[in-house]
Structure formats: C-alpha cells, structure tokens
C-alpha cells in the first residue's frame, strides 16, 4: 500500500516538472502555432546556468535563481527574434520552423557538451535534500515539497495571468484567431515576444528544479522536451491548462507503470503514449477542436 502511495507522490513530483516544461511549450505553441522543440534546451541551459553560477562561481543561491530565470527568458526571446521571426518573414512553413528548432536544440546541446563536458554534473545544494517521513510510509525530500509548491503556485499565477490581465487576454486572442486579433489592433509580434519571454522563464524555473532534483547532463534536453511535449499532447497542446493536466497524467503513468513493468520502460511508456495520442486523439483530452488535424 505504501509503495502505491509513494508511486503516486513520485508521479506528482515528476508530473509537476513535466508540467512546467509543457506549460511554457504550450504557451508558445498556442500563440505562435509552431513547434518550438528547442524549448527543451532552454531547460537544460538554465540547469547549467545554475551549475555555473552557484556551484562553480559561488553566487548566492537566490541570486543565481533570479539571474537564471531572467537569462532564460532572454534566451527564448533571442531564439524568436533571431531565428524564427526571420524564417516566418520569408514565408517558411511550420515544418521548416520545426526542423530549425531541432537544429537549435542540437546546436546548444553540443555547445554545452563542449563547454562543460559530457559527464553528469551535481549542483550540491544539500540543504534541500533532507528526507522527511510522512505517515503512510511516504518519504519526500524538502526539495520535492518545494517543487510541488512552486509549480502549484506558478500554475495558479499563469492561469490568473491568462484569464485576468490584458496581456493574457490578448495572448488568448492571438492563439484563437491571429487575423481577427490583428484587425482589432493586437500586435501579434509583440504578443509572440511575450509568449517567448514568459514561456522560456518557465523553462528557467523548470531548469533550476531539474538541476536540483536530478543530475545534469547535456543530452537531457531531448528527453525533457519529449516528456513536456507528450504531456502537452495528452492534455491538448493548444490549451495551457490542458497541457499541465496532461503532464501530471504522464508523470503518474510513468511512475505507476514501472510498478508492473521493468524500470527501463519508463521512457517507452511516454513514447508510446505520445504516439498513441498523436494518432488517435491529436487534440488531447482537453484541447480545443480547432486543432490542425487533417487540414
């Protein structure tokens, strides 16, 4: 019984990291309508930023986090302005943008590998790795509780932002109908700027948490991206709350799945779910019907 409870808790923790990746990804997808696959490398770059600033340079932890989130946001904006926007201006199709974004991911993955080596890196912020035992035979580290709390707070803030603020409403307007939005005077390039800033800042937060929770490796970007993307597809890629819920479903499926399957199949579970959803329910559980299926 305690094994099951522990697996559910682990599923929630994994799910909340996937959800942070997926939320940013899906925010960018819904406003820009193309697959920003390089989002995964934003997460990894943020993780290495923490390693560099905190572990190597000895910057205070909270300052490190702040700088990392800021730089992540700017990194995302730079990708949009320097690569995607010029491509869009010359009329490239979504498929070309997707291929370019895979190129960006591979490029930075290898730059990180050259700069930091291919071995795994530890952040070594030990204050948060203390385990706490809960009734029912569940143990969680302080960090894992922090992950659950922070991601919960961020999701509520993101939802409020999308629903209540003018910028959030404009974003949803662009996501809903780009032409109509520009007719009523919404500058969609400015909205895209903000979607990349906010989405990549979320990737920064995810990167910090991943860096603390797991070991860092340059190659983890692809895997994280597939997980975030799978979560987004399960929940509905063009609908941010859906992609968050989908990520929790994925986290649960992985952690409950390895109760019956060998633990090596964790990734296979995610890949199979991704493929099945793309084939049979490409708009996800909660996604809007206007998805570009069969268009």
């Amino acid at each position: 019984m305690s094994l099951l409870a522990q697996s559910i808790i682990n599923g929630l923790i994994t799910g909340s990291i996937y959800a942070l990746v997926a939320a940013g990804y899906s925010l960018i997808y819904s406003t820009n309508n193309f697959m920003h696959f390089a989002h995964g490398i934003s997460v990894v770059a943020a993780g290495y930023m923490v390693y560099w600033l905190f572990t190597l340079a000895g910057t205070p932890f909270y300052a490190t986090c702040l700088i990392t989130i800021l730089l992540s946001a700017l990194f995302g904006l730079a990708m949009y302005r320097l690569i995607y926007l010029p491509l869009q201006r010359r009329g490239s199709s979504n498929v070309i943008l997707l291929i370019a974004s895979i190129g960006i991911l591979i490029f930075f993955q290898n730059i990180i590998q050259i700069a930091f080596g291919s071995g795994v890196k530890l952040i070594g912020y030990i204050e948060v790795s203390r385990g706490i035992a809960f009734p029912g035979g569940i143990t969680m580290t302080v960090l894992q509780i922090v992950i659950l709390l922070i991601s919960g707070i961020i999701f509520i803030m993101l939802y409020q932002f999308m629903q209540k603020t003018k910028l959030g409403r404009n974003m949803r307007a662009v996501s809903n109908n780009k032409e109509l939005a520009s007719i009523v005077g919404i500058d969609h390039i400015r909205i895209s700027d903000f979607s990349f800033l906010i989405g990549s800042a979320l990737a920064g937060v995810a990167g910090i948490l991943v860096a603390l929770e797991q070991n860092l490796s340059p190659l983890m970007g692809t895997n994280l991206m597939i997980k975030g993307f799978t979560g987004a597809v399960i929940g509905g890629i063009n609908y941010v709350p859906g992609s968050i819920i989908g990520s929790f479903v994925l986290g649960m499926a992985e952690n409950l799945g390895i109760l019956v399957l060998p633990s090596g199949y964790k990734d296979a579970i995610a890949f199979s779910l991704l493929f099945l959803f793309l084939l049979f329910k490409p708009n996800g559980i909660l996604g809007k019907k206007e998805g570009r299926f069969d268009k």
């Binding site: 997707l98 793309l278 084939l279 570009r292 299926f293 268009k295």
Partner: peptide
Amino acid sequence: IATDRLRGDYLAMATLGFSFVVYSLLLNLR
C-alpha cells in the same frame, strides 16, 4: 498506415515520435 491521416506539424511530430519509439525499443528489448 499509422500516420496517413495526419498533416503538417502533427505528421512531423508523429514521424519523429516513431523514431523515438524505435530508439526506446532498441534500448529496452534487451
């Protein structure tokens, strides 16, 4: 058979997903 109904970037992601599935099968069918 699997991807005939998909278009555009969904098709791109499904075919990319296919290579991930094959990769994880190669890795896991020990």
